[in-house]
């Protein structure tokens, strides 16, 4: 049922694993409650119905890798009042951005053979092409944090990030500090709200929620350089930040 007073929402996916949409479905009743407050006019993964007029809110998951996706991103931007990136592929380029543009051709040759013409141009964040109004980071996003942001979005509130790093959440969870154990970790500079979920499972933090505003990247690098090789540090930073602005700071 279409209600003119409801905000028109489009949910789009470019090249990615679609895991952030799976996180959204995992919200179950909460997603249903949120979906009832908007009119989902376009969602390829969820429904066949697809309108292409104006969107009050466009959520985009994935990296615009192919020329078709880059064109479509520009079209969606023109049609949308608010454009929000969903997940690290959209916000930072994500895992696909580990490969640099100039490396792609050799892999097309090796994986597909010399006659194949690759479609992918370069895995970059949405912001490489258009203005983005807000970024919901995460690989994958945290369902609960996304629900909080959606709720603010629907209510027309100013959107913001939590004012703490992953390091803070890790300490709250009483986990042993990886840096003290001489294991690399980007927790001190990583934007929080994930609940330090990777660290709780025993994995590292690669900062998939983005680098917290005002974070002291230099200080962390000084610590990392004391026990980790340059290559190891590079691996940590390239996991999600190969194409993000942070990379330039280093």
């Amino acid at each position: 049922m279409t209600n003119d007073k409801k905000l028109k929402l489009g949910l789009f996916d470019f090249t990615d694993c679609e895991g952030c949409q799976v996180e959204l479905v995992g919200l179950k009743e909460k997603l249903l409650a949120l979906s009832e407050r908007v009119d989902i006019v376009n969602w390829r993964l969820g429904q066949a119905k697809a309108q292409w007029e104006q969107f009050d809110i466009a959520l985009i998951e994935g990296t615009p890798l192919t020329p078709g996706e880059i064109d479509l991103l520009k079209i969606i931007r023109e049609k949308s009042r608010l454009l929000v990136g969903l997940g690290t592929c959209a916000t930072l380029g994500g895992i696909p951005a580990i490969l640099d543009k100039e490396e792609r051709q050799q892999w097309y040759n090796k994986i597909y053979g010399p006659e194949y013409e690759g479609r992918g141009v370069d895995a970059l964040p949405l912001s490489a092409y258009v203005k983005i109004d807000f970024l919901i980071h995460g690989c994958p996003i945290s369902g609960n944090e996304a629900a909080r942001i959606f709720s603010d979005l629907i209510n027309g509130k100013k959107l913001n990030y939590k004012d703490y790093s992953v390091c803070f959440e890790c300490k709250l969870a009483n986990l042993p500090c990886r840096l003290l154990e001489k294991k690399p970790c980007l927790g001190p500079i990583a934007q929080g709200a994930c609940g330090a979920i990777c660290l709780k499972g025993g994995s590292a933090c690669y900062g998939c929620f983005g680098i917290k505003e005002g974070a002291n990247v230099g200080a962390l690098l000084t610590i990392l350089n004391k026990f980790a090789s340059e290559e190891e540090i590079e691996n940590y930073f390239s996991m999600f930040h190969n194409k993000s602005k942070l990379y330039d700071h280093r």
Binding site: F14, P140, S203
Partner: peptide, 30 residues
């Protein structure tokens, strides 16, 4: 099939073995 090629078989080369399960799990969120 029109999905963009992420080239995981290229992404992983020269990276440590322990990153393989972390990175390949991101091939598919389903």
């Amino acid at each position: 099939i029109l999905e963009g090629e992420r080239l995981f078989e290229g992404i992983l080369v020269n990276r440590p073995a322990e990153e393989a399960p972390w990175i390949t799990s991101r091939i598919c969120g389903v």
